[in-house]
Amino acid sequence: NITNLCPFDEVFNATRFASVYAWNRKRISNCVADYSVLYNLAPFFTFKCYGVSPTKLNDLCFTNVYADSFVIRGDEVRQIAPGQTGNIADYNYKLPDDFTGCVIAWNSNKLDSKVSGNYNYLYRLFRKSNLKPFERDISTEIYQAGNKPCNGVAGFNCYFPLRSYSFRPTYGVGHQPYRVVVLSFELLHAPATVCGPKKST
């Protein structure tokens, strides 16, 4: 009989979030998941669920729940959905087409922007091929755009693959930082360890 609440607040209220290319994953298990708490945590810009209804979450049980978190800019949030393409979905964080879970995003301009520009958040701009779903690539190998090998040196047709967002508070919403948490629900042929409040007794 599990009584402890799932530590969603640790994920959502973390002081620092990860850069999207090096997104963070927390496995959540053996706890009571009260998803209604999430609705009250922040004024969400996005709370979209796929393959599951957000209002039914509190009635369900899962084997595992994974919470992935990272920062992107406002106009990239739409890429965090099944079947999307674009720089983020292709080279940084890719959801599977049959994704079961929820994408939660909110504006973090007050936390993640600086007047002089916050350069701490990076994204991958160049990659030889698209990522597979939930693949994480943290390599910093020089990207070869031409025929000549780069031998690890940046220059003509040889690019450092990561680029930094420079978040400034005066930017338009599309270029402001957004914190994203992706909850993916895993149903294996194994005992369910993460249940809503109704199912945990």
Rank of each mutant, 00 (worst) to 15 (best):
I2C: 07
I2D: 13
T3G: 11
T3F: 09
N4C: 09
C6W: 05
C6D: 06
P7H: 12
E10H: 08
F12I: 10
N13G: 10
N13R: 10
A14F: 06
R16V: 15
A18P: 15
V20R: 01
A22C: 09
W23L: 02
N24F: 06
N24K: 15
N24E: 15
R25W: 01
R25F: 02
I28W: 15
S29G: 10
C31W: 06
Y35L: 14
Y35W: 15
S36K: 13
V37T: 14
Y39N: 15
Y39R: 14
G51W: 05
G51A: 07
V52P: 09
V52K: 07
N58D: 14
D59I: 09
F62W: 15
F62P: 09
N64R: 12
N64I: 15
Y66M: 11
D68Q: 03
F70S: 01
F70T: 01
F70R: 02
V71Q: 01
R73T: 05
G74L: 02
G74K: 05
D75V: 05
E76Y: 03
V77R: 10
R78E: 09
Q79V: 03
A81H: 05
G83C: 09
T85F: 08
T85C: 09
G86T: 01
D90P: 02
N92E: 00
L95S: 02
F99W: 12
G101W: 02
A105S: 14
W106V: 06
L111I: 14
D112S: 02
K114G: 06
V115H: 10
S116Y: 08
G117K: 04
Y123N: 15
Y123Q: 10
R124H: 00
F126M: 10
R127K: 07
K128W: 07
P133M: 04
P133D: 05
D137L: 04
D137F: 03
I138M: 13
T140M: 13
Y143C: 02
Y143F: 13
Q144P: 06
G146P: 01
N147C: 06
K148H: 13
N151E: 12
V153T: 14
G155I: 03
L162G: 00
L162F: 06
R163P: 10
S164Y: 06
Y165I: 00
Y165A: 00
F167S: 00
T170Y: 04
Y171H: 03
Q176D: 00
P177V: 01
R179N: 00
V181M: 07
V182D: 00
S184Q: 11
F185D: 04
H189T: 14
A190K: 13
A190W: 10
T193I: 10
C195Y: 08
G196H: 12
T201Y: 14
T201G: 14
